[in-house]
Amino acid sequence: MRRDVLVGVFLGIGIGLILSSGFNMILHQNKRIIDEEFIKSEAKKIGMIDPVEYFDKRDMNIKIDTKEDKDKKIIIEIQKGYKSEDVARILKENNLIRSEEEFLNKINNKNLENKLRWGKYEFTSKDSEDQIIEKIIKGKNVKE
């Protein structure tokens, strides 16, 4: 009789598992499929970010320096009323300086933020930050 009891218990467990799986499938049939978009939207709800959205795309330009690139002349225009932050941004956009923050720190440490002159300036990519600052402060404009 013990054998009959064990068979009955295992049979009951098996039937229970089958029924519960079937009910689970029926109940959750209309649930949303978890895909990449769902995961991203849920992550944003709890404050997580997608780092790709926050990269500065200008810093992602990979460029190999050649002799020709180093001698290339770059003309920028500093318009009347530009602040030192505007000048730093233009210089960075033209790959003349590595960091806007470092450039601004250098200008501020030398008390030159109010001495930058407007006009058109010609630089090369081999010019140092100090050379760039000197040109802008002395007002060595490009002759047109």
Score class of each variant (00 low, 15 high):
residue 38 F to C: 01
residue 132 I to N: 07
residue 143 K to S: 02
residue 132 I to Y: 05
residue 55 F to P: 00
residue 41 S to Q: 12
residue 112 L to D: 05
residue 96 L to F: 07
residue 130 D to T: 10
residue 124 T to F: 04
residue 78 I to T: 01
residue 3 R to A: 06
residue 50 D to W: 00
residue 37 E to Y: 05
residue 48 M to L: 15
residue 109 N to T: 12
residue 99 S to R: 06
residue 50 D to T: 05
residue 99 S to Q: 06
residue 54 Y to S: 08
residue 127 D to I: 04
residue 102 E to A: 11
residue 128 S to K: 13
residue 113 E to S: 14
residue 131 Q to V: 07
residue 81 G to Y: 07
residue 118 W to K: 07
residue 43 A to F: 02
residue 133 I to S: 08
residue 54 Y to L: 15
residue 97 I to C: 09
residue 117 R to F: 03
residue 133 I to L: 09
residue 4 D to Q: 14
residue 118 W to L: 00
residue 33 I to E: 09
residue 48 M to S: 06
residue 142 V to E: 05
residue 128 S to L: 11
residue 140 K to V: 09
residue 139 G to F: 03
residue 39 I to T: 03
residue 30 N to G: 07
residue 79 Q to H: 11
residue 115 K to D: 15
residue 107 I to S: 03
residue 8 G to S: 15
residue 123 F to V: 01
residue 97 I to V: 14
residue 134 E to S: 08
residue 45 K to H: 03
residue 89 R to H: 10
residue 13 I to E: 05
residue 142 V to W: 03
residue 26 I to Q: 03
residue 41 S to F: 00
residue 116 L to Q: 02
residue 100 E to S: 11
residue 52 V to P: 00
residue 23 F to C: 09
residue 81 G to W: 06
residue 90 I to L: 15
residue 20 S to V: 10
residue 4 D to H: 11
residue 129 E to R: 02
residue 31 K to M: 06
residue 9 V to K: 13
residue 38 F to T: 01
residue 42 E to K: 00
residue 118 W to C: 11
residue 16 G to R: 02
residue 21 S to V: 04
residue 57 K to V: 11
residue 111 N to L: 08
residue 114 N to T: 14
residue 103 F to R: 03
residue 3 R to I: 10
residue 98 R to K: 14
residue 1 M to P: 06
residue 135 K to S: 07
residue 83 K to M: 08
residue 62 I to D: 08
residue 119 G to F: 10
residue 12 G to I: 05
residue 122 E to P: 01
residue 92 K to R: 14
residue 131 Q to P: 00
residue 27 L to V: 04
residue 21 S to N: 13
residue 12 G to M: 07
residue 19 L to C: 10
residue 143 K to R: 03
residue 80 K to W: 10
residue 11 L to Y: 05
residue 30 N to A: 12
residue 104 L to I: 14
residue 142 V to P: 01
residue 123 F to P: 03
residue 55 F to Q: 10
